[in-house]
């Protein structure tokens, strides 16, 4: 479709002829036509992303009789649903925190290791793959490692440590943090590596010359410069963990995980008025995602100012 748009524009549109006749008028028509070139893309986005997203809010803000009402929308963040949001936000924040710390340490170690040189390339390439590793394989890996019959569970048992004695579970906060770190840490490596590489050796030298120690350097220079990208990374990892469905669904049927809860409502085994609560949950999820991604966007712009 867009190909046709391209071929319609006649040669010589730019420059020369424009200045001759009524430039402003000419430019206005041209700008309009330029923006019309985006129509196929905008239509695609509208039909397959924005209309579905709008429908979620539309359904969430509806009474059973079809009139406007906020009952389902409020129901989606009270009682059990509130507990679900609390649980999801807790483990997502925990997973993001672990990911930020471990990812930054790993990125720093990889960027400063002198030899062998291939280590850094290996870490970046691997991170590119592992950061995209959600879904079923990830769940299967940890089920075979730390599930009730998992190999590490059994090894620990052999040494007299019962992993499942307490409230550990792959679907509980601790388990989800361990599993989600598998894609969060590499994602953090990718986010933070450019910032770490942007730390100039001269800053460190200046700090040492002025009598600062390694600790002073990190306390006064390193961490403050990295802070926007650390916070940004936290938000990105949080959003990433908060919205993951596939892995969690295979690990557990814990209905306190918001995406699983939405899936349950969408499954259709609920009475008529109740399905609106599912859409309410989805609407709130979009709100949470929009807030964290928006803040991430702002922080990234800030960190680019320092480390352009």
């Amino acid at each position: 479709m867009a190909l046709i748009d391209l071929s319609h524009s006649s040669p010589g549109d730019e420059g020369a002829t424009a200045s001759a006749v009524a430039p402003s008028l000419r430019r206005k028509g041209q700008t309009l036509r330029d923006y019309a070139g985006l129509l196929p893309f905008l239509t695609f986005l509208l039909l397959f992303l924005l209309v579905p997203a709008y429908s979620v809010f539309d359904q969430a803000l509806k009474n059973p009789d079809g009139s406007f009402g906020t009952d389902a929308f409020r129901e989606a963040i009270s009682g059990q649903n509130f507990q679900a949001f609390k649980f999801s936000i807790t483990f997502s924040a925990g997973a993001a925190f672990v990911g930020v710390i471990a990812g930054t340490l790993l990125a720093h170690a990889a960027s400063t290791v002198e030899k062998p040189r291939w280590i850094k390339n290996l870490v970046t390439s691997f991170s590119g793959v592992a950061a995209n590793m959600g879904g079923l394989p990830l769940a299967f890996m940890f089920l075979s490692l730390l599930g009730r019959q998992g190999i590490l569970t059994k090894i620990l048992e052999y040494f007299g440590f019962d992993l499942y004695a307490g409230d550990f579970g792959l679907g509980e906060v601790s388990g989800l943090i361990i599993v989600y770190s598998y894609f969060n840490i590499p994602l953090m490596v990718l986010v933070t590596l450019p910032a770490i590489e942007g730390l100039r050796p001269a800053w460190r030298e200046a700090c040492v010359n002025l009598g600062g120690t390694g600790f002073t350097y990190w306390r006064r220079i390193g961490i403050p410069v990295l802070l926007p990208s650390l916070l940004g990374g936290f938000l990105l990892l949080f959003a990433n963990s908060f919205s993951a469905y596939a892995t969690a669904q295979q690990l557990t049927d814990n209905s306190k995980i918001v995406p699983l809860r939405i899936g349950f409502f969408l499954g259709g085994d609920v009475s008529i008025g109740e399905d609106a609560v599912g859409y309410g949950l989805a609407a709130w999820m979009i709100i949470v995602m929009a807030a964290s991604m928006g803040a991430y966007w702002l922080l990234r712009r800030r960190s680019e100012r320092w480390l352009g």
Partner: peptide, 9 residues
């Protein structure tokens, strides 16, 4: 708008 919200739509 993650996959689970998109599919709700």
């Amino acid at each position: 708008i993650p996959a689970i919200a998109l599919v709700a739509g």
